[in-house]
Design a protein around this nucleic acid. Structure first.
Lengths: 137, 137
DNA sequence: AATATATTTGCAACGTTGTTGCATTTGAAA
DNA sequence: TTTCAAATGCAACAACGTTGCAAATATATT
């Protein structure tokens, strides 16, 4: 999965900011916040540029955005890149990590007549495997 | 369901702001935003007071907060008042209404070993019954 | 390799949401 | 009616995100 190749495939200009974001998000084993991504990049970018890059990458379904409780925003590679179906997200109340539960497909909810279901977001909150074992922390 | 009685039951002081919020939220047939609630109140309250009232009422599980896409915040009566199990929320992409799907219980998601599941949020996005029938709009 | 052009960037300014500290007011109990 | 803890209003502030515009840059073309 090469960031440059991904940008080309989507006819997006190859800028170091976009390239960097994609690289960092793909390499991570969990969803990352704006600041976590910035800290892992070599270059320095304006916040505006960051937001615009995120927006572009989300629109092209290269990454996706996960929002927890109105305030915590994290990004992860999109379905179309690594996953293959709608999946649930897990948020750890202790360490505040967010991970894509690639193995947990989202239930097909049946809606009342006349309603259409475009997309379903599932966020499971709890304690992650590491935080629930204090002895190995 | 009397707002005054609810406040008493929770040992909360009976202020007109709290009383008003509870009354409006209980009467509504959908979740309401801060502004929608303000517009339905007679009294005028500072934004700070509003936020503090919401926080108190959420903490006491009198109302609950539903967040859509990081920006849209709505409130509805809590489970303990009207519902009796974890339920899904529906967001209409057209009219931006948010309703509690009291009849749609949340699936019990099975997590990997070591994970605990405290709470599950399900947000179904789509088109509501009214918006999908343009002829009756 | 040089040029042209549409796209992207950085900056400044702004809007919204939500919080904090503090003086004042108010609800409820004695 | 008095008392006191709790709630309110105000001012200031912080974080997040957007917009307009001039300058810089990526890519296609020559």
């Amino acid at each position: 999965m090469d960031p440059v190749e991904i940008l080309n495939r989507h006819n997006l200009k190859r800028t170091s900011c976009r390239e960097g974001i994609i690289g960092v998000v793909l390499k991570a084993n969990q969803a990352l916040s704006e600041n976590e991504i910035r800290n892992r990049l070599t270059g320095n970018y304006d916040r505006t540029t960051f937001y615009r890059s995120f927006k572009t990458l989300v629109q092209h379904k290269i990454i996706h955005k996960i929002v927890i409780d109105n305030q915590l925003v994290k990004y992860a590679p999109d379905n179309s890149i690594t996953h293959n179906f709608e999946h649930a997200h897990f948020y750890c109340n202790e360490c505040h990590s967010v991970v894509c539960m690639d193995d947990i497909p989202v239930q097909k909810y049946v809606l009342p007549n006349g309603y259409s279901n475009d997309e379903t977001e599932v966020l499971i909150k709890g304690t992650c495997g590491i935080c629930s074992k204090p002895e190995i922390k």
